[in-house]
Nucleic acid binder design. Structure first.
Ligand code: FES
Ligand code: FES
Lengths: 145, 145
DNA sequence: TTAACTGATACTAAATTAGTATCAGTTAAC
DNA sequence: GTTAACTGATACTAATTTAGTATCAGTTAA
């Protein structure tokens, strides 16, 4: 049971790369090399992030992309929603307005609690938080890098 | 972002059906009609549930399936694991023993907390609990059914 | 003018999920 | 002891989602 797809995984990693180089235009190529993400695939992911307004781009030589706003305001939940849609444990609610069988609704009820929890947790994790965690880990383990 | 597949969804519903008719052999056909699940699909799901030991079967005319143990000991988490594997937010840990890039591990760390939470929550929901919830709802809304 | 970029879009491949079909064997009932 | 109602095993197809590739047009800096 995989919760995050490659799209989301790569997108978050790309956002971390961008967030660590504020105020500069970073190319898709640079990110793809740094994070070992297939270039063309990453380009398409970037284009989505741009359309969604999480990053802004500049065309042409010397161009690239950068975060559109403070990393602390970019939540992993936002990224998930862009690439995987909102977390929903079961889709049956949308099949019919009122489901034929109450048993499922009971299941659904239990499950929506969990859904809410997951959403809340992913909303707490921001790119800014990931970057500061990352820096802390680096300081501890590779001080002179 | 869909968390439960049809396999899991149908399996849980089937287990609820079985749990509501204790001490009797219920046929796949009956469950398929009661829960509006495609018959052949449900048969294969049942076979998995039998192999996994959650239900036991009896062959031949008058045969069918029944829960192998108390509904309170059958957790939705068990069903998810049978059909979707254990909840894992990101798979990257298994790519290499030590990942090339620490950034991902940071992400992973945050994410494993969420993974644990989801697992714990799904472990709390049992078929027995769903059945009792269901009965309560029926009493409230359809007292004479 | 050229090289280094992004924008847009079309395409393919692989994996997963969903569903169907068939035949063999078992049991109950007549 | 034949038949009908069942499960066991297994092979197959279809649909959807995920992952990845390719190409060409347009923009900008040097
Ligand atoms: S909401 Fe889907 S079955 Fe009740
Ligand atoms: S554990 Fe997968 S990248 Fe670190």
């Amino acid at each position: 049971m995989k919760v995050l797809t490659k799209h989301t995984d790569y997108a978050v990693r790309a956002l971390i790369s961008l967030g660590m180089k504020p105020d500069s235009w970073v190319t898709a190529k640079a990110v793809s090399e740094e994070q070992a993400i297939p270039y063309q695939f990453l380009r398409r992911i970037m284009q989505e992030l741009i359309k969604s307004g999480l990053v802004v781009s500049r065309e042409g030589a010397g161009g690239g992309v950068r975060l559109a706003r403070d990393p602390d305001t970019i939540r992993v939940k936002d990224v998930i929603e862009i690439f995987q849609g909102a977390v929903q444990v079961s889709e049956c609610m949308f099949r019919k307005q009122l489901c034929s069988n109450r048993a499922n609704c009971v299941l659904r009820h239990e499950i929506m609690r969990i859904e809410q929890m997951v959403n809340d947790e992913f909303a707490k994790v921001t790119v800014g938080k990931l970057i500061s965690d990352l820096k802390r880990v680096q300081v501890l383990s590779e001080p002179k890098l």
